[in-house]
Amino acid sequence: MNSTVLINILRFLALLAVQVVVCNKISLFGFLVPYPYILYILLYPVNGNKAVLLISAFFLGLFIDMYLNTGGPHSVACVVLAYMRPTFFKFSFGVSYEYQTIKINDRLSPERLSFIFICVVLHHLILFLLEMFRFSLILDALLHTLYTTIFTLIICVITIYLIKPAKQL
């Protein structure tokens, strides 16, 4: 139990650092910035404490907002994603997901991929709608969501594959 807590704290800090130092500086084609920091919310233990997840997700989003000067959309998107996570588990892994031992950071099956995909889409949709915050820009927000989802998804999958060997130690 203790090692799980430690791993989650480390993951929180590492993903925040990677997002701030590396990913925020990437600007593919001038506007595509990936947000792999949401892996923290996705990889949080399935049966872990939900209140802790909600609060930590809120602060994760708040820190990202501070570094990006966005003012709030990241924390909204993170809190909603953390709250909706069980619903998406049910959708992707079936109703009895709590009794199975699901590990997201394992080999990529269609269920896992669909779970990550839905989470990323929800997060990015809320993020870009709130970031642009204008009815006239809804189409731009949807396009941004589409492109960035693809980018973030690729980075997330690569990250999961890269971290996996370290997990088995």
Binding site: F58, G61, G71, G72, S75, V76, V79
Partner: peptide, 16 residues
Amino acid sequence: LFLLLLGISLTFTIQS
């Protein structure tokens, strides 16, 4: 708790 945190973060967003 979710509604509380959502309220806080939405306030930040709308304010900004």
